[in-house]
Structures are given as structure tokens and as C-alpha cells.
Design a protein around this nucleic acid. Structure first.
Length: 478
RNA sequence: GGCCCUAUCGUCUAGGGGUUAGGACACCAGGUUUUCAUCCUGGCAGCCGGGGUUCGAAUCCCCGUAGGGCUACCA
């Protein structure tokens, strides 16, 4: 049987790290098993679901290349793939009706206040709250009356009592629940939309999902969902519950931690390679100790049996390190194209005025300095600022005698220099002839030439400006 | 409160009866072009606690403790 997995986000917010990691694991599993990766939009929350969030989810998936095999935009044989559209088709309504007829569900006319009162009295008595099931005892004529009066109602599922329900999780071991502790839960809300627990079971079954891979926060829903599978006579899929991704305070990663949309990481200049690689290592580990893994390596090595059980703190520092690794690893042309796209419009404009050679020099001189690609805008300033910008900074430069000596000897020795290598040769020979350490020579040159203490590789900087412009700047400092 | 899950360096993790408990990030020191970096080398640092089982426990079991999740007509 071919594997069918699904990624089922709700468009009630931008795509977040935790959600994306679930997508990644589903996608990796589908690729590894040559299965089908289904995208289902769970937009049953009419209040909070927004089209722009669905777009953001698509943007995030697209960035990493997780193209759904079936989904709202892709289509497929098990559609529609938006729950809102499935509601319109009456999918859930029909099934809920069937459960009522079979006596497995009932109309519930209790108001929020009624339920609140039940809860409070349970707390007072110190016993766990379980829904009272009052409405299920109504006679048929009572029900008809309420219905014809137009009284708002929900449809509740009658939980099996006095039963221990068990399932085997692919990540953990056997987990069991005592059903007598679980309330009759809502199948259809009073607004006619299905609840999460109902919709998820119906859709996973109807979409022939074979493996449900999702966050650990769904474990507590298992007794409800498993009871539904049983009541509906559906085949139960395999379940794998992924550990949570945590913030620095070890609670579930959320906006509180500044957990921004996945697209913001893209916009800052994290590479999709490093983002995917890092995320894969959050909750899963390969057999050997290699940590830098390509997409293909990830796919070929991924398996559910190496998924971890405990939560993992999202460590931006390691992501940054990994991003640097990939920035230095990708091809020159890839680097150049990608990096240019992160340049501000102003810098793009200024850069385009330069020769190819100078553009290349400016872009590649900072490759080792970059953590994220958008950093280019702070580094490249030294190459693109106007002469008057430079002047305003350089006028405060104060040089000592040694530094003046270095600069004058640079002036006389660098006349023939053109390339980065030639300039470095020149600087090194100054070190020797003046018996000075490299820092004593490099520093004043950089200072005089750029009016900065640090910056891109000095050889490239000198080659970029060329002898004439260097001479001009240095003489103004002396 | 009830139910469920989890527990190896600060962080991500390997290891699952006998290991000098391994790697990575971060941090510190040294070396590369005494710039910021990159890169290389070295260092610091860990099995939550208590009981059992066993010749032997970080590893298996139980109990604590801690953290997390769920307890919605959110998903």
C-alpha cells in the first residue's frame, strides 16, 4: 500500500517554525517512502481563518520546496482539500447525522452557561469534570420541539464509558487512556461547522491517509479520535507524534518568543538548505555524526524510528552557524544571484553602475563575514558610499607617527598594484621592511582608506578602490 | 486539580547493562593575514534525585521531582 501523509495547518496565523517542522517530517517521510504528500487546509474556525494566512503557508512551503502532491491548488482525487469547501458539500453533516441515527451522537441544547455551571460544581466537589450528557436523555418529542423552536444546538459524540483505549505511537510506546474521564465532545458546532476532532478523523479516513505525523500536543486528543474511528468503522492509520519545539524558556515555541513567520527567516537571508537541515535536526537525528546534510541525504536517511521523544529548544545561534556553512558552500553563481536579491533597491542601483569586476569584488569580499544574506547591506556600504560620506567619517581620524610611516610607504610601494593578491603582497612587504606586525600595518591602511576599524577582506577592498582613489584618500588623512 | 508525554554538557544530540559517556553549537585559549570574520588546533562542561533488579545501571523497573502538553461549540 502506498504511503499517504498529510500536512494539515489551520490558516489562523502565519506559518510558524513548529508547523513547518511538521510539514518537513511529513514531506521527508513521503519522499523516503515514495508516497503522497497531501496538503489540507483546516479552516473550520470561521472567526480566525484568513486567506492571507493560507497564502503565507503556501509561501513558506514553496520556499523550502515542499510541493504538495495533492492540495487546494494542486487538486487531487480526494478533494476538496479545504475543510470549508467540504462543509459546503455536507461531508461532515451527513456523517454526524448518521451517528445520531445510530445512537452514537446526540443533539445538545446546553448553553455555555449551563456547561460552565456543571464545571464549577465539579470543581467544588473536587471531582474531574465530565460532560453531564443531559441532552442525550431528552425524548424524541422534546428534541423535535427544541429543533422546531430554532434553539441553537451542537451535536455531541457519546463517549464510550468504562473503557481503556490504547494505541501504539511510532515514536513512543503504547499509550492508554481511561475513557470514563473524557467528556462527550462536540462533533458539530452550533454554527454548523465541524469541530477539529471530528473533521480531522473524517478527512484523514476519507483521504485515505496512512500515517498521521503531527505534534505531540495532539496526543491528548487520541481517545476522542480513536473512539470516532471505531464508531465510524474507519481503518485506523499509524500515528507518530513529534516532540514540541520549545522557546528558550522551554515552553512551546510561540509568538511570545518572537517566533516569527517562517517567511521572515527567508527574508532575513537564511538559506533554505540550512533552514531545512537545521529543522530536521530538531527532533530527529541521523545514524552517524554528520550534521550538514543535503536534501537528498535527509530524504534517504530519514525514518520515524529515529525521531526523538523529548522537546527541543530552538537555538537560533546554531541556525546562524549552519547558515554560514551553506553560504560558503553554495556555488559562486548561486551565491551571487541570491545575494543580489537581498540588496536594498538603493544599493542595487548603485552597484549596477560599477564594472562587473568591481561588483564581483564587492559581493565576494564579504562572503566569509555573512551570517544571513541581508547582512550584505551593512557590509557593502563601504564600497557604495559617496565620497562625501567618506569625508564626514574620515575627518576625525587621528594617526600616530608609526601609522603615518606605514601609509607613506604604502603610497610609494603600491603604485603598480591592481589585484587583491598584489595589494596583499605589498602590505606584507611593508610588514617586513618596517618590522611591524600585520595588524600594525593593515589597521591604519583600512582606517585611512575606509574610515572604519573593520570590514571586508582588506585585499579586496584595496583592489576595489584602485591606486588612484586610494592615493587621494590617504593623502587627505596624512 | 485531573489526564497524558518527557528527562545525557548552557543548547541540539549519540550511546540503551561493562564506553576514558562520543559529536555539534555557544563559550574560552592558541594558531593561520595580531582587522571584524572564515579556517585549524586545544580546552571547559553532562547521564534530575531516591530506591530496586543485577557480579555490574546513564542504560531495565518503581517512586519522587522537574518541565511540557491537553483539559473549548481553537486547531
Amino acid at each position: 500500500m502506498t504511503v499517504r501523509v498529510r500536512f494539515a495547518p489551520s490558516p489562523t496565523g502565519n506559518l510558524h517554525i513548529g508547523t513547518l517542522r511538521a510539514a518537513l517530517f511529513n514531506w521527508l517521510f513521503a519522499k523516503a517512502k515514495k508516497g503522497t504528500f497531501v496538503l489540507r487546509i483546516e479552516d473550520t474556525d470561521r472567526e480566525r481563518s484568513k486567506p492571507e494566512f493560507e497564502t503565507n503557508i503556501y509561501d513558506g512551503l514553496k520556499w523550502l520546496g515542499f510541493t504538495p502532491d495533492e492540495g487546494p491548488l494542486e487538486g487531487g482525487d480526494f478533494g476538496p482539500y479545504r475543510q470549508s469547501e467540504r462543509i459546503e458539500q455536507g461531508v461532515y453533516h451527513d456523517i454526524a447525522d448518521r451517528l445520531i441515527k445510530e445512537g452514537k451522537a446526540y443533539y445538545c441544547f446546553l448553553t455555555d452557561e449551563d456547561i460552565q455551571r456543571e464545571k464549577e460544581s465539579a470543581i467544588k466537589k473536587g471531582i474531574p469534570y465530565v460532560h453531564s450528557r443531559k441532552s442525550s436523555e431528552m425524548s424524541e418529542s422534546e428534541i423535535k420541539n427544541c429543533l422546531s423552536e430554532g434553539k441553537p444546538y451542537a451535536i455531541r459524540f457519546k463517549m464510550t464509558e468504562d473503557k481503556i483505549i490504547t494505541f501504539k505511537d511510532s515514536v513512543r510506546q503504547t499509550i492508554e487512556f481511561d475513557c470514563s474521564l473524557i467528556s462527550d465532545f462536540v462533533l458539530m458546532k452550533s454554527d454548523g461547522t465541524p469541530s477539529y476532532n471530528f473533521a480531522v478523523v473524517v478527512d484523514d479516513a476519507l483521504m485515505a491517509i496512512t500515517h498521521v505525523i503531527r505534534g505531540e500536543d495532539h496526543i491528548s486528543n487520541m481517545p476522542r479520535q480513536l473512539s470516532l474511528y471505531e464508531a465510524l468503522g474507519y481503518k485506523v492509520p499509524e500515528f507518530a507524534h513529534l516532540p514540541m519545539i520549545l522557546g528558550p524558556d522551554k515552553s512551546k515555541l510561540s509568538k511570545r518568543h518572537g517566533a516569527t513567520a517562517v517567511t521572515e527567516y527567508r527574508d532575513q537571508g537564511f538559506l533554505k538548505e540550512s533552514f531545512m537541515n537545521y529543522l530536521a535536526l530538531l527532533g530527529w537525528s541521523p545514524k552517524d555524526e554528520q550534521e550538514l546534510l543535503s536534501e537528498d541525504e535527509l530524504v534517504s536517511q530519514f525514518d520515524l524510528d529515529r525521531v526523538h521523544k523529548s522537546g527541543a529548544v530552538f537555538d537560533i545561534k546554531k541556525l546562524v552557524w549552519m547558515n554560514g556553512q551553506y553560504i560558503r558552500q553554495i556555488s559562486d553563481s548561486q551565491f551571487s544571484t541570491l545575494l543580489r536579491s537581498y540588496l536594498s533597491e538603493d544599493y542595487q542601483q548603485k552597484l549596477s553602475l560599477l564594472t562587473e569586476e568591481k561588483q564581483h569584488l564587492a559581493l565576494f569580499s564579504v562572503r566569509d563575514n555573512l551570517d544571513v544574506l541581508s547582512d550584505i547591506n551593512t557590509y557593502i556600504d563601504v564600497f557604495l558610499e559617496t565620497e562625501s560620506d567618506y569625508d564626514s567619517k574620515s575627518k576625525d581620524i587621528v594617526l600616530n607617527d608609526d601609522q603615518r610611516t606605514v601609509l607613506s610607504s604604502f603610497l610609494s610601494l603600491s603604485k603598480e598594484c591592481k589585484s587583491s593578491e598584489e595589494f596583499m603582497g605589498c602590505l606584507n612587504s611593508i610588514c617586513e621592511s618596517l618590522s611591524l606586525g600585520k595588524g600594525k600595518v593593515f589597521k591604519p591602511v583600512r582606517l585611512a582608506v575606509t574610515a572604519r576599524q573593520s570590514g571586508p577582506f582588506i585585499g579586496d577592498v584595496l583592489a576595489f578602490f584602485g591606486v588612484d582613489r586610494l592615493r587621494e584618500r590617504i593623502q587627505r588623512c596624512l
